[in-house]
Amino acid sequence: MPVSSMTGFARFEGQAEGAGFVWELRSVNGKGLEPRIRLPQGFESIEAEVRKRLGARLSRGNLQVSLTLDRPEGVSNFSINHAFLSELLRLSDEIVRSERAAPPRADGLLALRGVIEVSDETHSSDWFTARAPAVLQGLDGAIAALVAARQSEGLALKAILDRRVDEIEALAKAATDDPSRSLAAIQARLQRQVSELLGLDAGLDAARLHQEAAMIAAKADIQEELDRLTAHVAAARTLLSEGGPVGRRLDFLSQEFNRESNTICSKSHTASLTAIGLQLKTVVDQFREQVQNLE
């Protein structure tokens, strides 16, 4: 199963017993699966099933889910308020009889506010029950389209993440091979620093110098951090190849990457190793930023 992004959009149009409907699904990043569902009046009873079907295919993301229902052909959206119209006619008759106004025209009466009302069609529960299966089948189509859209973006994200993992591995190798990590280099640096401090070029105790160099080397050793980086790189590649909802586990690995890069920087006593550590931190930040988009 490929990795999936948490962002995507899908639209599905269908027919249910003469009534057209449209599902629209929008998905963005989220800590968990958080659907917000808008259904037309009368379809409230299918909300639980909608949530169930979303949960069966998606594990993370903030979802905006809306169902729009088109009215069947031949069904009017308007109605006349006959009681209000009758009262208007009665009043107008009184005014006309008093010869204070001309008889009203039909178009003038219908233009008065309140005479024509925009009404929502009401149907029996059986009307909605008969159309629910087709509407839910349409939801399945919309979810499938959303999953495909998220997987398509996930492929692009995977390519980016693969490159970042390669860069982390390369930087870890560069740190491993950095000449400043050798005991001889540490000893030479210490001898130079002590000589500069004392203003001497010779006369230092070789055994004591070697002992001090070994202690500094032990404190500055980053082999454990490099070993953990290597293990994390392997774990990240395994997760990216397995696919599925791996965003949380990759986010944890990004935190581990960051911890090791921070430690390498803090232990470094040379410009070359510090530069590698800072570059590593940059790449890890880029890795973590992209991981936030994964399901």
Rank of each mutant, 00 (worst) to 15 (best):
G42K: 02
V115E: 00
K52L: 14
L91M: 07
R53M: 08
E121T: 10
E44T: 00
G74V: 10
A83D: 10
G114Q: 07
L58I: 07
S59N: 12
V50C: 05
G74E: 13
S119L: 13
L39H: 03
A56D: 12
L63M: 12
A106E: 02
E99I: 06
T122M: 13
D107R: 09
E44Y: 01
T122F: 11
S124A: 14
E99H: 10
L109Y: 01
S92W: 01
L63G: 01
S45V: 11
I116D: 06
P103G: 06
L110I: 04
R113C: 07
G61C: 08
L112E: 12
R51H: 01
L89M: 14
D120F: 10
S66I: 08
S125N: 10
E47M: 07
L110R: 02
R97F: 07
H82M: 15
P35Q: 06
N62D: 13
L110N: 09
P40M: 03
L58K: 05
N77M: 13
A101N: 08
L67S: 05
L63A: 05
S119R: 15
S79F: 04
G32N: 14
P40D: 01
N77E: 14
S76Y: 11
R36D: 12
P40L: 03
E34K: 05
R60T: 06
S66M: 15
G42N: 03
G42I: 01
R100F: 04
N62K: 15
V118Y: 10
R113W: 10
E49C: 06
G32I: 04
P35R: 07
S59K: 12
R38F: 06
P72K: 00
I95F: 04
T68I: 11
L67F: 12
I80K: 11
S66Q: 15
E94C: 05
N77T: 15
L69G: 02
L39S: 02
G55K: 10
L85D: 00
E121V: 11
A111I: 07
R90K: 14
F78R: 14
V96P: 03
L58Y: 07
P40V: 02
I37Q: 03
A106V: 11
L33D: 00
I37P: 00
S79I: 06
A83F: 02
R51C: 03
P35E: 06
R100Q: 11
S66P: 08
S86K: 13
G61R: 02
S45A: 15
G32S: 13
T122E: 15
A83G: 05
R53W: 03
L85P: 00
E44H: 08
L54Q: 02
R53P: 02
S98P: 04
V50P: 01
S92Y: 04
G55N: 06
S125D: 14
L63S: 02
S125P: 04
G55L: 09
R36S: 12
R38V: 03
R57E: 13
V50E: 00
E117S: 12
E87M: 10
L33M: 05
A101K: 08
E117Q: 14
L89R: 10
I80E: 07
